[in-house]
């Protein structure tokens, strides 16, 4: 039996895919929101003068970057409840996994951006009587944040795609929804292609929005 391309199945199932997409977006944004907080804290700890904080951040960053996100997701969803005796709802587990995972990468983005700021800026801040934390807040962080935007955008795209791995813990996100549709209509070619195109539209959109944002914020001279 010859293969016949049936784009109409996509049209029929499109509302379902969109429901999956909604969850993908919610988990991505929620995960990155907490991931940014977590990453900022870990990144600042990594450059702290306190060796204990540096080590602690180092252990977090290395253990997350050194293990697959799939393992992290399954450990959190299946493993941790066995130890703690509480089940974590899949969506919450998904947000936690994305947050903890992206946080480790964002920590390195934050650390790198802060360290790329001329040490003279810290000295100038201190020399007018600001404390170390005031100088960080008013002088270093705003400059570093602008330099974080391109790599953060990159992380946004990576995390968006990584949410598809959460299908293994039963999160009904975009790919999982596609799989459920295929289980009913067996149109793997059309459905997975549609799923892929939806991801692509999202990531291209993010990339475009970021370019606009970068241009909007005054780009600082590199020195």
């Amino acid at each position: 039996m010859a293969f016949q391309f049936e784009p109409s199945v996509v049209v029929e199932t499109f509302p379902m895919l969109m429901r999956g997409l909604k969850l993908t977006v919610v988990i991505t944004i929620g995960g990155l929101f907490f991931g940014f907080i977590l990453g900022s804290i870990a990144g600042l700890m990594k450059i702290s003068r306190n060796i204990l904080l540096r080590k602690l951040a180092g252990v977090y960053i290395e253990s997350i970057r050194g293990t697959p996100m799939l393992v992290q997701a399954m450990f959190l969803y299946y493993g941790v409840p066995m130890a703690l005796g509480v089940r974590i709802p899949p969506i919450m587990a998904g947000i936690i996994v994305i947050a903890v995972n992206s946080g480790a990468y964002i920590a390195e983005i934050v650390r790198g951006a802060i360290q790329s700021i001329d040490p003279g800026q810290m000295e100038a801040g201190r020399s007018i009587g600001l404390t170390r934390s005031q100088t960080m807040r008013y002088i270093i962080w705003p400059q570093a944040f602008r330099r974080m935007i391109p790599p953060l955008g990159n992380q946004f795209i990576i995390s968006l795609k990584d949410t598809s791995l959460l299908m293994v813990i039963g999160v009904g996100e975009l790919l999982r929804t596609g799989q459920e549709i295929v289980a009913v209509n067996f149109r793997a070619f059309e459905v997975y292609m549609a799923v892929g195109i939806v991801y692509l539209v999202m990531t291209l959109g993010i990339a475009k929005a970021l370019r606009a944002l970068e241009q909007h914020l005054r780009v600082l001279p590199e020195k």
């Binding site: 001329d118 003279g120 000295e123 100038a124 020399s127 007018i128 009587g129 400059q143 602008r146």
Partner: peptide, 17 residues
């Protein structure tokens, strides 16, 4: 103390933002 004896640097170190 730093605010009483403040410094002007060779490289200016103005806050560019």
């Amino acid at each position: 103390v730093r605010a009483e004896a403040t410094m002007v640097f060779q490289q200016f170190n103005l806050f560019p933002h």
